[in-house]
Computed example of a mutant assay.
Amino acid sequence: MAATRPAARASFGIGTVKVRPGHTREIGLPITKLVTGSELSLPVRVVHGRHDGPVVWVNAAIHGDEVVGVEVIRRVLATLSPKTFRGTLLAVPIVNVHGFMAGDRYLPDRRDLNRSFPGSSRGSLAGRIANLMMREVVAKCEVGIDLHTGSDRRTNLPQIRADLDDPRTRALAEAFGAPVMLHAKLRDGSLRAAARETGATVLLYEAGEAMRFDQWAIEAGVAGVLRVLEALDMVDPVVGAPPVAGLVSRRSGWLRAGRTGIVHLDATLGQRVEVDDRLGGLSNSFGRTLRLVRADRAGVVIGRTTAPLVNRGDALVHIAEIEGAQPPGTPDSPAASDGFDALGEIQVL
């Protein structure tokens, strides 16, 4: 008697399109029309594997000037074959299409798209885009990775922000392998908050600077996304160095300028600091020192400004306090890093 062949996977439906198993399809989900009458669409690539597995999404450019994630997604997709892929991946490289085309963080009405979820099909432009993303992408998935960079004139150490108290989220955050995992509260209106309400497991990746292709941020993002897909058994084991055990933080804060002036920062991403360590200084236009910049807490530098001119109160250095960190001078305490090679084998130049 002939063996029964397993039933083929069903086609995957998104918008008005059906994607057959073992195939990849690029589609545009209609958002609105431009003043010219041209259609503006949300770009999605569906990788519908031949074999069963989870349904996952990865997105970038919710803020239109955050371009690192767009390149991360391009490089990840270049490694995937729907013939061997297990499960389904929905890749949305540009969520804020208006902002991306203009090189702007926000939408034309200055709304922050990442404060507009879950949105409404009858709301503002931001609300309509958010609703479309939730309805056609997030609602179909069980896991999502939201890719970000620092905001204008700020740069971030590769880091995962997530609910580290949820076991599955924690496991996937560890699989990603970023130098730091930050337990982050949900923000009202964010994609992560809205997706969590649907039951999805969400990781938020932060790395690099807006409007720049920081290669170290891109490479860490590509490796991390592929490791998450591997942990979900959607791809075969990724060749390369295993992930470094990320440091865990549950509290962080920005050190702010005490004076208006020209800032000269010595602090580097990934650097270990102790309370009162000198991180730079503020001077006037003649070079006279106005105030030193000193650490107000012990931890690791996970973000810093790239702006040379600052006003009093501007954010300068973001320091994450490390869970379980030992006092300096103890035998097992990690050494300070000039970049963040000791935390993730990635060096900022």
Rank of each mutant, 00 (worst) to 15 (best):
A175V: 09
C141S: 09
G49I: 12
V228K: 00
G208S: 14
A217W: 00
N156Y: 15
V235H: 12
G299T: 09
A231K: 05
R110L: 12
L42K: 02
V58Y: 12
G299L: 03
S190V: 15
P179H: 07
A2V: 15
R170E: 10
R312H: 14
R259H: 13
G281Q: 13
G189W: 02
T24S: 10
R294G: 11
G261L: 00
V248R: 07
T330R: 04
H264S: 11
E209L: 06
T260I: 03
V76M: 08
T32P: 00
I27T: 01
A8Y: 06
A220G: 01
S252I: 13
V95I: 04
E136F: 01
T155D: 09
V275C: 03
A195I: 07
V67P: 08
D277S: 07
V76C: 11
V138A: 01
P327V: 09
L247M: 05
L279N: 01
G224T: 01
I319P: 04
F340S: 06
C141T: 02
R25T: 05
A60E: 02
F117Q: 00
S120R: 14
S337T: 03
P21G: 08
T268K: 14
S249C: 01
A325I: 12
V273H: 01
R278N: 14
V225Y: 08
W216L: 06
D214W: 03
G240H: 12
V180F: 07
I145M: 15
G15D: 05
R259M: 13
G258P: 14
D163G: 00
V310Y: 13
I62C: 05
L164P: 15
V92H: 07
R86K: 12
D314H: 06
I14D: 07
A126N: 02
L343F: 02
K83R: 14
M211S: 11
L265Q: 11
R170K: 06
G144F: 04
A325K: 10
V310I: 10
S116I: 05
G329L: 06
G53Q: 07
D314A: 06
V44Q: 10
V180Y: 09
R192N: 00
D314P: 11
A320Q: 07
A3K: 11
